[in-house]
Simulated scan of single mutants.
Amino acid sequence: MKAQLIAHTQLSEKFYDSFDELDSVGNYDFNYLSQFDTTEGKLVALTAIRTCYSANKPTEIVAKEGAKYFGSKASDGGEGTDADRLFRHIVRSGHSSTLEHISFTFAIEGVSRALLAQLTRHRVGFSFSVQSQRYVRMGSDDKIGGFDYVLPDSVKGSTVKEALFRAAMRAHQEDYDALRSQGVPAEDARAVLPNAAATNLVMTANLTALLSFYSKRKKGRGAQAEITELAEALRREVVAVEPWTDQFFEEV
């Protein structure tokens, strides 16, 4: 399995440049953002959250309120800045719709079709583009060289179990190849491929949706090992670019 972040929310150049035009007291300040330890995700989050409560326009919030939130310690006594305090308050109060504006796109490779069936049950806030077994032919003589598959943890390490599992995979491949050789189209021959067959996909999800997914699929919640591994991989990718989100993954 491989899960790699390939894109995430970024500010537009026009919006980013506007921060340098006006500081919190209405003066021009061309180094406004450089004084704060922040991320683009935090800036989007602050803009969305404060839009709900502020008399300022969304395009003005970072410029006029950024110093207050990013430039002072958390007033709740917790870690980080007052922006971090605000984010904690929003998540804990259930107003996490404001975090739906922060999105992440992942390339996910080498996961089973069984995992895919579980993953696509998480629909709200998710978008999927999946390698098709209809258009990507899975025959031994096709470009792909036959379907790959995922070996479950419960099978690994046992000579007998692995032998049985791999024999079953070979049988599925032989059945698929035989059907194709008889002129059965790939879209019908794929019906004999197993849940263990590997697939690749691109998935986009917003932060709120990812937190919900993680809360249900993290270790200790009864999820299958493969999707638990994916949940941890997605978390690592998100936290690497938006470190402030780590506490929310911890809490869900």
Rank of each mutant, 00 (worst) to 15 (best):
3 A>H: 06
4 Q>I: 14
11 L>K: 07
12 S>T: 15
13 E>Y: 06
14 K>A: 15
14 K>E: 15
14 K>L: 11
15 F>K: 12
23 D>H: 10
26 G>T: 10
26 G>Q: 05
30 F>A: 12
32 Y>M: 04
32 Y>W: 08
34 S>M: 07
40 E>G: 06
41 G>C: 10
42 K>C: 07
42 K>D: 04
45 A>K: 03
45 A>P: 09
45 A>S: 11
45 A>Y: 02
47 T>A: 04
49 I>N: 01
49 I>V: 15
51 T>H: 09
51 T>W: 04
52 C>G: 14
55 A>E: 05
56 N>S: 11
56 N>D: 13
57 K>Q: 12
58 P>D: 12
58 P>W: 06
62 V>N: 12
63 A>W: 01
63 A>I: 02
65 E>W: 00
67 A>K: 15
67 A>C: 04
69 Y>F: 15
70 F>Y: 15
71 G>A: 06
71 G>F: 03
72 S>V: 01
73 K>H: 11
73 K>G: 13
74 A>C: 15
74 A>E: 00
74 A>W: 01
75 S>A: 15
79 E>I: 12
84 D>T: 03
87 F>R: 09
89 H>L: 14
92 R>D: 11
92 R>E: 12
92 R>P: 00
93 S>Y: 01
95 H>A: 08
95 H>M: 07
97 S>K: 02
98 T>P: 00
99 L>N: 02
100 E>S: 08
104 F>L: 08
107 A>S: 14
108 I>P: 02
110 G>N: 12
112 S>A: 07
114 A>Y: 05
114 A>G: 14
115 L>Y: 03
115 L>A: 11
118 Q>M: 07
120 T>D: 02
122 H>G: 06
122 H>E: 03
124 V>P: 00
124 V>D: 13
125 G>L: 07
126 F>Y: 15
130 V>E: 14
130 V>K: 00
131 Q>H: 06
134 R>D: 00
137 R>M: 02
139 G>L: 01
139 G>P: 01
140 S>W: 03
140 S>F: 02
141 D>C: 03
142 D>G: 01
147 F>R: 09
148 D>F: 08
151 L>W: 00
156 K>Y: 00
156 K>T: 04
156 K>M: 05
156 K>C: 01
160 V>I: 13
162 E>C: 02
165 F>D: 05
169 M>E: 13
169 M>W: 07
171 A>S: 10
174 E>D: 13
176 Y>N: 09
177 D>M: 08
178 A>H: 06
180 R>N: 01
180 R>V: 14
181 S>L: 09
183 G>R: 03
183 G>W: 06
188 D>K: 10
193 L>S: 09
198 A>Q: 13
206 N>R: 10
208 T>F: 00
209 A>H: 02
215 S>K: 14
217 R>Q: 14
221 R>D: 00
223 A>E: 11
224 Q>H: 12
225 A>H: 09
226 E>F: 08
231 A>E: 09
233 A>M: 13
234 L>C: 10
235 R>L: 10
239 V>W: 09
239 V>C: 10
242 E>Y: 04
243 P>E: 13
243 P>M: 05
243 P>W: 06
244 W>L: 05
247 Q>H: 04
249 F>G: 10
250 E>I: 02
